[in-house]
Design a protein around this nucleic acid. Sequence first.
DNA 1: CGGTGGTATTTTTTT
DNA 2: AATACCACCG
Length: 853
Amino acid sequence: MTTLGLDELNPSQRAAVEHLSGPLLILAGAGSGKTRVIAYRMAALLQRGVDADRILAVTFTNKAAGELRSRVEGLVTRFGLLPPLDPSDAMAQVLPRGRGLPQWMGTFHSIGARLLRRMADRAELPSDFVILDDDDQLKLCKELCQREKIDETAMPPRALRSQIDRAKNHGLLPEQYRGRDYFTDLVARLYPLYQAELKRLGAVDFGDLLLLPVVLCDRDPELRQILGRRFVHVLVDEFQDVNPVQYQFLRHLSSGHRNLVVVGDDDQAIYGWRGADVRLILEFEHDWPDVHIVKLEENYRSSQVILDAAHAVVSLNSQRRDKRLYTQRAGGERIICHEAIDERREALYVANTVLLLQNEEGYFPDDCAVIYRTNAQSRVLEEALRACGVPYTIVGGARFYDRAEVKDVLAYLRLCHNPADELALRRIINVPARGIGDKTVTKLEARARLGGIPLWLALHNALDDEELLGSGPRKKLRAFLDLIQGLRQIAATLPVSKLAREILVRTGYLALFDGKDAEDQSRQENVLELVGSIEELERESTAQTAGSVELGSAVGPGAETDDAAPNAAALEAALFAPENEGQKPLSLGEYLTRVALVTGEEIGDSGRGVQLMTAHSAKGLEFKVVLVTGLEQGLFPSLRSTIESEEEKERRIAEERRLCYVAMTRARERLFLTHAQTRRIFGMSPRMSPPSQFLREIPADCLERTLEYDAPSRTTPRRPLRPTHAHDDASDSRAHADFDDLDLVQRAALDGEASLTSGALAQAGAGLSAFRPFRSARKTATLDDGEPRVEYDLDDGAGGLRKGQRVRHPQLGRGRIEGITAWQGTVTVQFESGERRTIKAQFLRPDAEYCEP
DNA sequence: CGGTGGTATTTTTTT
DNA sequence: AATACCACCG
């Protein structure tokens, strides 16, 4: 028998792999080989003869699931682990075994969707239910608020959505939700209406994918039992990011056999805002008293310096399991902390650093990652990298599947799959414009509502309804219906990609973008890329099913159970019927479900060049070189202006710290931390951006501070801007006071001329204009009319403005501040002219008469 | 009806 | 800055 390569593991890792039954908590620090342990453990289970289909492995992202899958696959191949057939298990005989790999590996959401799909009738859903994306969800909330005549200021649609999400993450059904004040009472009223609307549409949202299976389990012991019997081993990655519903789901699955393995690191809990509760990992022993705990504290990724710095930050959190990573790779390069003048120069510094690392230290752009707090920060970085000719890839970010043109095409596909998909229908009924305008649609909607019938049926009926519509619109509707029906017909026989192509041609959608401007071009590219991605999926799925075709098509019991008496056997069969029923490699339905769940992932040529991503999407990845940008108070850590209790504030800062810890520990060899003195947000005027408190929290001897030099020109003497206190700019020294106390090493990383005239930068052109000589003029910035503007501070969102303060506006005259919106920099002003406007603070000046000294 | 231009809004992070 | 939304006009 093979040894499974256990000698490749350290003692703790081996202990985790070899503990084969009962609850197990693996506290796995960053870079301690956690995925490795999970993969080995799964392999070990397979080796012991556990059926691959009895293992459930849950990850947090699709990426992680893919990673795990390929690791397990690698081990299975390497050690020749073939699952033995268990003659006593009838289902096992029937299931396609793929290549002996666990088929139930995926994200919580994809697993929830898979189960829900198969027991849709129990959830009173059509089996081809639609999965709403963020946008659809928000639109629904918006419509609901309008229909219910809700005051937008009392309940913005976004707030409603987030409250509903919150409720679902905590396992609360509409009827269980209780209001406690005006706001939540409103939610309590709207949430049931929202859910009813989902039902009417035959749709679920992301939250439902978990909530509904859990609720069904809560109510039905039989179902619990079936699931518990089926999944004899449950493994969960990133357990620190699990929310209450997800945990309840795990409990339902595991309470029988108790073979629950959770792997996580409380220091990397960064999804509190999505309902994740760190206490679940902190207090795991409470629910599972006999849990075996394994700590993985040896880090195989980063240098000691990087670990020390990251640890220094995260160890300031009070609520954490005490642990400290160690590595055998002592020492390491010091972390470079660079202060740029503004965000554009910060970006140029990043681009330059990548070039320097390439030219002088032999790193490739592929080795580097740039990490930031918010997606919006990627734009400047992209510009700089492009200008310098550095290849890059954005990970996540403006998601491909979020683009309007992609969603349009998907809407056509959805409509082909399911004509009752009202959201899809409404989306494309007049795209491209075919003369079916708002008027017509409104009439149809009214009819549908009145008759309690689906919209498409109302549309159908309207074709002969001369009272409802004139002959023109009817003719157009007819044409549209013919179009869709034609597509539906070919949908039955064509592969999805071919169908998509037909859609593009027949609907004239592609012709919409035949213009020459960049906009049209990129849209066209996106649409074609979508088709390309479908083709790729089709290739993949035929390759995958090839091995198990005979088994897959031989299935009898699982296929048609809808009408059968819902006994346990039938339910079980339905739940665990093999994926690919027919010959068709990738059905339309499968594709649509997949797309709904695969957010974010880039399709097409990814992974080349420098990788740009948010700290959240960086979790689980590692790079030789990492540059963390925008380390400024208010940005990273992100600070919001909403009034909160001290306790709540501390909780939030703790999560930001963990996020910073995650970002820093992505680095193997070199870590750069950058921040800018001023930063432009929303294209408003630049604002002071004090360095992040995290920079102060890092021990000084881990850091090497660099500053951008005053002027790029050779003729100007090179002189550090600070800490000379040459210009006694009050706000400047205040902002940096703490930082200046450090024993800083002054150095110019941006070696003025050398890098500025280096080949790549030379072409930068526009980018270089960012290098105008620095003027210490931030505070004396003026409006065009020469009057000083209202200064506003980063520390409070209102920018130092207060309610009741008197202000003046160049056009609108005098007024008084009535309210300060939560959104930074915008205030409501009641003008003396009687006009009341919401206006950006930067256009206001204090009214001399009432202005405080 | 459909396209155009002007105005208001943007509430981190992602499945 | 970028985008979503809206009002107006051909």
